[in-house]
């Protein structure tokens, strides 16, 4: 199943992995190493913090079987709400996805129906891309599910970087065995995220590039996901435009709004 989901929240997650919830974490039982990691990740989170946003993103997917390009408009409010609507191609125009808390709906203009995401669709592809719906749903739980630590601090390939290693908590319901995130030391801008399975073999690589000024901040405008098993395939997300602090009321993220063109 490829259901369109919380786009921007997802994108932000992919770029920095962690979001607001880091701030509210209790540090009582954590090690010094973890405290430091969480603190830095909090700073990164601050960098990306936005109460609301509106953006235009183009997604390019290349697989052995098809190539596709989709342009979407996205709105987000806080952590809990997001709405994404396809602008092109014409065939899928108007298709929209609403994420409200834990619940995800998809509106299909062709058949004028709204469908709620069920457990059976979780591991399906998102929009024909290399992400699954599960990736999107789990995004907001990242801080609860992983214990971060600083794995490396120093120069690598001529750049000063920080490398965070995220290990899943023993009982966390996550499919990854480890996530490794590399960020630039001075700006905390993400460079690469590596996803490992339980046997610690690399499953996919996410790289960030094209650092530009957008919405008053410096952000990587391009993100590319490559599955390790199919090195010739990839999914690329390109930010055309993003605005932070836009005024979107909570009522904007409703089923009624979902159907509106």
């Amino acid at each position: 199943m490829n259901l369109k989901l919380n786009h921007v929240a997802f994108l932000l997650f992919l770029m920095v992995v962690l979001s607001l919830t880091w701030a509210s974490m209790s540090f009582a039982t954590t090690t010094d190493d973890e405290v430091r990691a969480r603190l830095i990740l909090d700073l990164i989170d601050d960098l990306w913090r936005a109460d609301s946003s509106e953006s235009t993103v183009t997604m390019r997917v290349v697989t052995a079987n098809y190539r596709r390009t989709v342009t979407m408009q996205n709105w987000t409010l806080g952590k809990n709400y997001s709405l994404v609507r396809i602008v092109s191609p014409q065939k899928e125009k108007g298709t929209a996805t609403l994420k409200s808390g834990n619940v995800i709906y998809t509106y299909l203009p062709k058949t004028d129906r709204t469908i709620r995401l069920t457990s059976g669709m979780m591991m399906g592809s998102w929009m024909g891309s290399h992400f699954t719906n599960d990736d999107l749903v789990k995004e907001s739980r990242m801080a609860d599910d992983y214990i971060p630590r600083l794995g490396f601090e120093g120069d690598r390939e001529g750049r000063s970087i920080l490398e965070f290693i995220l290990e899943p908590k023993p009982e966390a319901p996550v499919v990854w065995g480890r996530v490794v995130i590399t960020v630039l030391a001075e700006s905390y801008l993400p460079l690469v995220s590596l996803y490992y399975d339980e046997d610690l073999s690399l499953v996919r690589t996410v790289t960030f590039s094209d650092f530009v000024e957008m919405g008053g901040r410096t952000l990587p405008a391009r993100l590319r996901v490559v599955p390790t098993e199919e090195p010739d395939e990839y999914t690329e997300l390109i930010y055309e435009d993003i605005r932070f602090g836009v005024l979107v009321p909570e009522s904007f993220f409703s089923l009624q709004q979902l159907r509106r063109q």
Partner: peptide
């Protein structure tokens, strides 16, 4: 000994995951 992740709908119909 390997990890199995499961996703189901809870009593209210919301999606939940367990390990």
């Amino acid at each position: 000994g390997k990890k199995l992740i499961y996703t189901l709908t809870d009593r209210k119909g919301d999606l939940v995951s367990g390990m």
